[in-house]
Design a protein around this nucleic acid. Sequence first.
DNA 1: GTCTATATTCGGATAGAC
DNA 2: GTCTATCCGAATATAGAC
Lengths: 224, 224
Amino acid sequence: MASDQTKTAILTAAEALWADRSFGEVTMRDIVAAAGVNLAAVNYHFGSKDELLAELFVSRTTVLNRERFAELKAAELAGNGRPSVDAILHALVGPPLRWCLSPDQQRSAAARFMTRASVETVPPIKKIVDREFRHLQRFANALRQALPHRDEVDIYWGLHFALAMIRQTVTDSERLKKLSGGLCDLNNTDDIIERIVAVARDALEGDGAARTPVAIRASGTRKA
Amino acid sequence: MASDQTKTAILTAAEALWADRSFGEVTMRDIVAAAGVNLAAVNYHFGSKDELLAELFVSRTTVLNRERFAELKAAELAGNGRPSVDAILHALVGPPLRWCLSPDQQRSAAARFMTRASVETVPPIKKIVDREFRHLQRFANALRQALPHRDEVDIYWGLHFALAMIRQTVTDSERLKKLSGGLCDLNNTDDIIERIVAVARDALEGDGAARTPVAIRASGTRKA
DNA sequence: GTCTATATTCGGATAGAC
DNA sequence: GTCTATCCGAATATAGAC
């Protein structure tokens, strides 16, 4: 087997396993068994279990963040440098949710893996949070520019809540499905994204906006 | 040392350690070292590491759920059997947040421990999720009664989002503090509870964004 | 590059003294 | 009830054959 294939097989297997279980619960033996490679391969290609996690996490977040950032840039272009709150939130929420709910098993696993890994306290992740931190700052800055009249504190809380809903939906959709007796459709990606964006938008734009009648909201006051 | 003291010391130490690290990352040796007791004491008093986790989790959730439920009952009394959405949400959100932000270190650790443990995939937790499930169903039922005109699906999503915000705030407040440059005051318990309740209430009572047909919503808010 | 076999550490559990 | 000492399995990592 070629070197690249072995590396990729390990990364893919690790991602799938870490999507559903924590770092410590997944052993290297689990990973190599799923990847169909030998135990020694992990250390040969990555050095250690920790470094495998770090490389995998950087690899996936780089792609996801690029996708988010591209949408943010597109929104800035469309808004002549002032993207709407709605567009910013779509750039933040859309990519992870579309990944998670994708029929592509690997994409879905990648989204769950990242969400899980980002709250792990193990050393390899601690070293990488800075990357994610700067990534989120871009969104915070975009929101501040889009809502110059809003108290900054409210903006950060709104972003915090948006991230909360993304996380919960990516990692805990099973509970919602059971709680609702199967009523909540977790296959309708667009509907879910719109729900999260809508709630986050109301949180950001404030109480007044949140109680504005549908007719006014839907006609697009934010675009002005 | 008396039996009760040893048991309590183990429970307290385990709770504090599991508040910040996952099940697998905390070893029994870590726990007994923090508790100042001997390694064998855990097996003597609890049987195994798994059973220690299960007993601790049941112990803490029992108290928290009772507190939540008492507030829900009080709200029902005050509302003549029909508690307001606001009161229901306060019963759901208040207890875990007050625990988490309490100056009492143990209370705070208990809240973080429960939040962490509830998403663990290890066997001892899997066996207990049913308890939590029934607990949440009570709140779902209360919300359905308070909002009879609302689509049930929206109610479950609103509950889901409320739980998301609670979880994120309990486990990840540190990131919000850093992201906001210290602007967000994470000591003002009441303010935080009101923020979460307000957003959840808007999501539940809705300005309609979440239940508006896609066709209408898309005309004004979707990005290009 | 890949794999087998093994070294080494670590963690959970237990036996038995006190 | 408590503690020391130890067993046993598991997990990471590595050495060395192919």
